[in-house]
């Protein structure tokens, strides 16, 4: 990997190679908390992507003015501003969903994913790179949440996006939509991702030989 990855490289990296949830274990609160169904999970991804992209843009624009010791405070306040906008928007146009997501929308402020992107990328890179990075990371975050939510909603309620997929005879696995199910599914998926990554690496080595 080159020292300074280009914008498109950063975009690709965010999706799978450096997936925020599976590879970096960042942003776990929403991954566990709102994935009992596809709808809340996707709303959450939308809100997080909005905040991540907007704050990356702003931080990248003001990167010349940042003072080292006040950096983190500026990042958090920037993020909090955009989270307030997203929260008010959800409350105005998607009232039911904002009730269901409850405190997890304001908790985007302390989502480590956003602060780490501001710190690692946006505060050092130009606008285009920062946007590409944020978009890639949001996509990766979306994929991760979608994978967890798919397993939990299908096994827990037999539906996907509220559409019945497993037929009416499916005995709902109640545990899947309850908190323990979130931990179990994420644990197994992280294990699966590791196993798959290892296997690909091993295959690549054998092919190389």
């Amino acid at each position: 990997m080159a020292d300074q990855p280009t914008a498109s490289e950063r975009f690709i990296q965010g999706i799978l190679p450096e997936n925020p949830v599976y590879r970096q274990l960042l942003g776990l609160c929403p991954t566990l908390a709102v994935t009992n169904g596809m709808k809340p999970a996707m709303t959450m991804v939308g809100a997080t992507a909005f905040v991540l992209i907007m704050s990356n843009i702003l931080v990248s624009l003001i990167r010349g003015l940042l003072k080292p010791h006040l950096r983190i405070l500026v990042f958090t306040l920037t993020i909090a501003t955009f989270v307030t906008i997203a929260d008010r928007f959800l409350g105005a146009y998607m009232y039911e969903m904002s009730k269901e997501l409850g405190p997890y929308v304001p908790l985007i402020i302390v989502n480590c994913l956003i602060i780490s992107r501001a710190e690692i990328c946006a505060s050092k890179q130009s606008l285009g790179t920062a946007v590409a990075d944020a978009a890639g990371m949001s996509l990766g975050f979306g994929l991760a949440l979608a994978s967890v939510a798919t397993v939990r909603e299908i096994l827990g309620a037999g539906t996907w996006f509220g559409i019945n997929v497993l037929g009416s005879g499916w005995p709902d696995w109640g545990i899947m939509v309850l908190p323990p199910g979130a931990f179990l599914v994420l644990g197994l998926l992280v294990g699966g991702a590791n196993w798959f990554g290892d296997r690909r690496k091993r295959l690549a080595v054998t092919v190389g030989e």
Binding site: I175, P180, F183, L184, G187, L188, V190, G191, D198
Partner: peptide, 23 residues
């Protein structure tokens, strides 16, 4: 522990069992 589950994977599963106990 199976190699793929080492670290985060098994920690999540343990947390899941703890959450079940706390239920």
């Amino acid at each position: 522990v199976p190699k793929a589950l080492k670290g985060a994977g098994i920690a999540f599963i343990v947390a899941g069992i703890m959450a079940m106990a706390f239920m």
